[in-house]
Design a protein around this nucleic acid. Structure first.
Length: 817
RNA sequence: GCCGAAGUGGCGGAACUGGAAGACGCGCUGGACUCAAAAUCCAGUGGGGCACAGCCCCGUGCGGGUUCGAUUCCCGCCUUCGGCACCA
């Protein structure tokens, strides 16, 4: 018998698919009134580092299975691929090895494209895009200008996070535990003129429109909610009477206003120098502020470090009771949240309490449990209806939530406060002082100021430079000829912006470009975008739970508000695949525990790798790669292979009208289809295929059942096609079929799923005592009668009185004695 | 601390809507084939007990509860993982 040789088979069918353009899906001629169902299956585009790893294999094989099943179910399926090609690794490789980042990137892209071909993924290669191509980044720049016109892109000097190793600023989202998300270096604070996108204007929308999403993992929604960090409270204005200076604070606990005993400013607060100018405290306060600024972020935000601060000599007035509160400065108050100033209520805030304790400031309890005795000292009680106010003038006795509202209303009536909402989210800092990115299309003119590059002059091409090494300013600044340019408005001397954009800008709209990738007149045609989008199924790693997924949602909402697209959310369903571990740890080059996809494909074939990566376990959980595991899958393919040889030799067989094996085949169709399409579960369909093949093996020697065996074998081949498209195609051909990839997805016949008999489970007192095969459709009385006849049941009934009888039709009888 | 996810055999896991716990695979054991091995095929495989063709008990992190019946629902814990965190 001919042996299964994956290499030759896989090459053969990959060539056929390429020749026939098997997976090319053109846009409909009139997208606005195209009929038939369409489906957009998208996986996060790869960053073109050296080669793909097992995480990519899992990611894109998941998408591939969904694509095949949907295609064969009759959908027009968009399934594109591209490269997130700008970014630091290519630039760093170019610096290290010499050469141009473009050359490094394009070499890597070629290698990845080759590997993807070897995996046999059903990608529409006619739609391939790469974010570093001028044909692409021209439109990234165009979109930047749209945001600029809308007032959503702006430049300002602001304290920013600086990565000393990568020599560039970072977005807040790229700082993890105060370290650079890419290189792990501890970030520093700097104050720089930088470009921002006003994502904070969309904070509420980003929260509210989560309701439009069909299926996102709860943990991702939670992370985004945490990141946006919305909290409701009030702004309350305290006042330095002597100087006529108002100091507003943001608080979530206006109910504790009567408990405020001091007031604290952040060391960076802009009014601080003015407050202490010419006073005996000036030197000490400014000295403290300078030292606080010099502290590292890690040190300063360590909650275990004893709190420090100094008194400014000033007092503020509490608007509710005219109390004069001493004004302190301390670095436990952060300039970047709220107003950079707080009212301190040591009785009801642990941080304020720690500070009060250290500097011997008074503690005044104003909220107590409604039912219990007030405790002495600090009581960090909640602020639900279970707590009430004390020592709070006319608000005493009110429950905490009512008191909040009443106090804010009272303040509002006197112009001393108003309801307010605080967010953790900051505007998105998009400037980068690096070469390999999309140039920001802006020029600075001495006369006209900040001037956008006119649309017809796009793209602003990346200039060629000799030196990519970052030195704290953009390498683009060295291209003096490129930097000097006439002002688009007045024609006078102007200079180009030399920073490039964060690569997350590039990937915030690539899924729209895929719809219309060759458009030279526009970023995309709205009708085409609206035809395909929003994405029905997005698949990718959890590492983008905040970064890319938040930015892409923001971009989509902006584009919708600008009338450029007709949808509000880009990705209706999101699936995050788990990480693949090997030898007990996450695969990494440094640990030397990497399983190379190429080596596995060479040894077992792409089909076996594809099947195994999905068989390892639930795809949304982390999985452990077992070398022995893939052998089991190789065995399945081999068993199917040998089975098909036998069946093919047997020649055509009469189509069976029924039979247990035909029923099993239909059950497998139902299971695979439901798991993939409804449950998005990929390992159990493979188990169902194992079961089907095992069952065929048990009966294949029976010549009477040749028709059943042939039908079940064809079904198994057809069902395995989304997982193992090459060998399935080959086996399908050997069974006399052609173009399996275009064959309609098998339909389970409901009549074949129904059974004439079932195994009735009989319980006594809820414990299984016996089982008996009975006909479907018996009445409850008949089922109970059958159950009572069983000897094992009778021995447990033992003549006792039956107090209750539970019958679940089609399943069980439970007799309670 | 706040928010979220998860805990099932030796291992990965299944059980979807409250109805046979452990599908399927790995591993292991035994058998067939073979001079032998590999491959292949067949069978067995949660733990314990007994009067052992069989039967009984225990068993889904722990303790309670609801129910005729709980891996599944409720309450309270424990552990692990992830996010946020001097965020006022």
């Amino acid at each position: 018998m001919e042996r299964y040789e994956p290499e030759a088979i896989e090459r053969k069918w990959q060539e056929v698919w390429a020749r026939e353009g098997a997976f090319h899906v053109p846009n409909p001629d009139a997208p606005a009134d195209a009929d038939g169902s369409r489906s957009y299956v998208l996986e996060m585009l790869p960053y073109p580092s050296g080669e793909i790893h097992m995480g990519h294999v899992l990611n894109y094989t998941l998408g591939d299975v969904v694509t095949h099943v949907r295609r064969r179910s009759g959908d027009r399926v968009l399934r594109p691929m591209g490269y997130d090609a700008f970014g630091l690794p290519a630039e760093n490789a170019a610096i290290r090895e010499g050469g141009h980042p473009r050359a490094v990137t394009e070499r890597n892209i070629a290698a990845i494209r080759e590997q993807m071909g070897r995996m046999g993924w059903a990608i529409d290669w006619d739609r391939e895009v790469s974010t570093h191509a001028p044909e692409y980044y021209r439109w990234t720049q165009w979109l930047f200008l749209k945001l600029f016109e809308a007032g959503l892109a702006y430049r300002r000097e602001a304290p920013v996070k600086w990565c000393p190793r990568d020599q560039t600023v970072l977005a807040n989202e790229q700082v993890i535990d105060r370290r650079c998300e890419r290189c792990g270096a501890e970030v520093e604070a700097r104050s720089l003129e930088q470009w921002f996108f006003r994502i904070t204007a969309y904070a509420d929308t980003l929260l509210e429109e989560m309701a439009l999403l069909e299926s996102w993992p709860e943990r991702v929604l939670t992370m985004q909610r945490n990141w946006i960090g919305r909290s409701e409270g009030a702004e309350v204005v305290f006042r330095v009477e002597e100087l006529d200076v108002d100091l507003p604070v943001f608080t979530t606990r206006p109910d504790t206003l009567y408990g405020a005993t001091f007031f604290v400013l952040a060391p960076e607060h802009p009014l601080l120098p003015e407050l202490v100018a010419g006073t005996p405290h000036e030197g000490e306060v400014l000295d403290y502020a300078r030292h606080a600024g010099a502290r590292s972020a890690v040190d300063r935000t360590d909650p275990d470090r004893p709190k420090t601060g100094v008194f400014t000599g000033r007092f503020v007035t509490n608007p509710v009771n005219e109390d004069r509160l001493p004004l302190w400065v301390s670095d436990y108050v952060l300039m970047e949240y709220g107003t950079g100033a707080i009212m301190a209520v040591p009785a009801h805030d642990e941080r304020d309490y720690a500070f009060a304790d250290r500097y011997e400031l008074p503690v005044k309890t104003v909220v107590v449990p409604a039912d219990g005795a007030p405790e002495a000292g600090a009581a960090f009680v909640g602020h639900s209806a279970e707590e009430k106010l004390v020592d709070s003038a006319q608000f005493s006795g009110l429950a905490s939530p009512e008191a909040k509202q009443a106090i804010v209303e009272w303040l509002e009536g006197r112009g001393k406060g108003r309801p307010a909402v605080g967010y953790r989210l900051r505007d998105w800092l998009i400037s980068r002082q690096r070469y390999w990115g999309c140039p920001i299309p802006i020029v600075y003119c001495a006369e006209c100021g900040t001037v956008p590059v006119p649309e017809e002059e796009l793209p602003v091409l990346l200039p060629e430079v000799d030196e990519y090494l970052p030195k704290g300013r953009s390498p683009l600044a060295a291209a003096e000829e490129w930097v000097r340019t006439p002002c688009a408005r007045c024609g006078g001397d102007a200079r180009r912006e030399t920073d490039t954009m964060d690569t997350f800008v590039d990937s915030s709209w690539y899924f729209i470009r895929y719809c219309d990738p060759h458009n030279e007149e526009a970023a995309f045609d709205r009708a085409v975008a609206d035809y395909w989008l929003p994405v029905n199924q997005y698949i990718g790693g959890i590492e983008h739970a905040i970064l890319h997924l938040l930015y892409a949602r923001f971009f989509t909402k902006v584009l919708n508000d600008l009338g450029l697209v007709g949808f509000r959310e880009p990705f209706l369903r999101l699936f995050n695949q788990g990480m693949i571990h090997y030898l007990g740890a996450k695969m990494s080059k440094s640990k030397g525990n990497v399983v190379s996809p190429d080596a596995m494909v060479e040894r077992y074939g792409a089909d076996a790798v594809r099947l195994y990566i999905l068989y390892m376990g639930p795809a949304d959980q982390d999985m452990e790669w077992h070398d022995a595991g893939i052998e089991g899958i190789a065995k399945l393919i081999d068993r199917l292979w040998r089975l098909v040889q036998e069946v093919a030799e047997g020649g055509p067989a009469a189509a069976p009208a029924g039979g247990p094996l035909v029923r099993s085949a239909h059950a497998a169709i139902a299971k695979v289809t439901d798991d993939v399409m409804r449950r998005f579960q990929f390992h159990t369909p493979i188990a169902a295929l194992f079961e089907l093949v095992n069952e065929i093996y048990r009966v294949k020697g029976d010549v009477e059942r040749a028709g059943e065996v042939r039908f079940a074998t064809e079904t198994a081949v057809s069902l395995i096609q989304p997982y193992a498209p090459h060998v399935a195609e080959e086996l399908w051909a050997r069974l006399g079929g052609e173009r399996l990839w275009e064959q309609p997805w098998p339909q389970a016949d409901p009549a074949m799923l129904e059974r004439e008999t079932f195994e009735l489970v009989v319980q006594v007192n809820g414990r299984v005592r016996d089982r008996v095969e009975v006909a479907v459709g018996l009445s409850e009385e008949e089922l109970v009668a059958r159950a009572k006849e069983l000897p094992r049941v009778r021995s447990h009934l033992d003549g006792k009185e039956i107090r209750k009888t539970v019958v679940v039709p089609g399943r069980l009888v439970n007799l309670v004695v």
